[in-house]
Design a protein around this nucleic acid. Structure first.
Length: 367
DNA sequence: AATGTACTCAACCGCACTAGC
DNA sequence: CGCTAGTGCGGTTGAGTACAT
């Protein structure tokens, strides 16, 4: 037996709202507020609508300062970045875009932005078996430990900790660090997506993670490996674990749903394949780290390209850790401060007094 | 002009969560 | 502690519209 419906569906009006209904609802709320009870509101306001319907209409259309119309490039970037970080948590994303509603952003993503991104990807990636479904709409892998690897299973573009999108050499920067999965990944994991460098529309994703303290904090250090001249025949994910070689430790926990990632690592992105293709290549190449806005853009460094020396790579990367760490701390602080606000405010958005805090709590929990 | 198809987006649905009893 | 009502959220639907044939 399902739960009781929130209202008598036979006796409520459904479908599009008329201007008269809008006016009634608007003037009622402006006069009396919602009274903290949406269910009772329609009756008080003289509307034959379900309370949920009234709430939705108010939040998405009638409340003040709602912004309609085209999304700007900046808004696009924020949406992309946040989607890459936290998945389809539209209310949080909406919190970053004053005047935009979660519904708006969700619609925009599903109908336009996702396609826009797909269109920008090189064709070989779209066709590649490595990306059987480019799951731009996959949920965040970190909502719970049980679906932690949903995106990995889907070979998602935005798999795991990936936080950077580099399309046509235009970096879409990261706004938030990813939410780490409990329990923590291997501290020396290194993942980078190397694509065919001969294709000038190359698409690079990558990150480094540093897991210092299992119990309290994960230090995720996202960065981009701008791989100058890879000669790979197809895109490849590289799973490194400092040479320890145990499958499933590349990232995430194999103890709580992590095995799927392990399988992907083993079947599709095996070390052998990587090693073979990299065997005759230059041992050292210049990489560029980009990320976190302007703070660490274009910082070049040398990384040892030998598969067997991934540990050394990690060591090199760690030379940049402190700066990166402070950048991350900045973001964390921002999140933390927001979390300490009164429960009536919403993530990052002082203007929005109409929503509450479920997702904010969730982020707070992870950090 | 008529018809078919694709697209948009407001609205709905159902689930998860919380507070209050 | 369990139940219920209220709320918020993400996913999905479908009516209206634009565009193609």
């Amino acid at each position: 037996m399902g739960r009781a419906p929130c209202c008598d569906k036979d006796n409520v009006k459904r479908g599009p709202w008329s201007p008269e209904e809008d006016a009634k609802l608007k003037s009622f709320i402006e006069k009396y507020g919602t009274g903290g009870n949406w269910i009772a509101l329609p009756q008080k306001a003289g509307l034959k609508r379900c309370g949920k319907s009234c709430r939705l209409r108010w939040l998405n259309y009638l409340r003040p300062n709602i912004k309609h119309g085209e999304f700007t490039d900046d808004e696009d970037k924020i949406i992309c970045s946040l989607f890459a970080s936290i998945g389809s948590r539209w209310s949080i994303i909406a919190g970053q875009l004053p005047g935009r509603t979660d519904n708006d952003i969700k619609n925009y993503w599903n109908t336009k932005l996702k396609k826009k991104l797909l269109a920008m990807l090189p064709s070989f990636q779209k066709k590649s078996s490595f990306f059987p479904s480019l799951s731009l709409q996959s949920p965040s892998p970190y909502r719970s430990s049980s679906d932690q690897f949903t995106m990995a299973n889907n070979s998602s573009l935005f798999y795991g900790y990936t936080n950077f999108i580099n399309i046509n050499n235009n970096l879409t920067h990261l706004s938030l660090p990813p939410q780490p999965p409990p329990p923590g990944p291997d501290p020396n994991s290194l993942i980078g997506l190397l694509t065919n460098g001969n294709n000038e529309n190359g698409f690079y994703l990558g990150f480094q993670e540093n897991h210092h303290d299992h119990q309290s904090m994960y230090n995720i250090t996202p960065m981009e490996y701008h791989y100058p001249t890879p000669d790979l025949k197809e895109p490849m994910l590289m799973f490194g674990n400092g040479g320890e070689g145990h499958e499933g430790s590349a990232t995430g926990s194999s103890s709580e749903g992590g095995s799927s990632l392990s399988q992907i690592s083993h079947e599709n992105f095996s070390k052998d394949r990587y090693q073979n293709q990299q065997h005759n290549q230059i041992k050292q190449e210049e990489y560029t780290i980009q990320g976190f806005g302007d703070h660490i853009h274009n910082r070049s460094f040398i990384v040892n390209d030998d598969y067997n020396d991934q540990k050394q790579n990690v060591y090199n990367l760690k030379n940049y850790e402190s700066q990166l760490h402070s950048d991350i701390e900045e973001v964390k602080q921002l999140i933390g401060n927001t979390n300490n606000r009164s429960s009536n405010s919403y993530l990052f958005n002082d203007d929005d007094e109409y929503k509450t805090t479920d997702d904010r709590r969730e982020i707070c929990y992870h950090y």
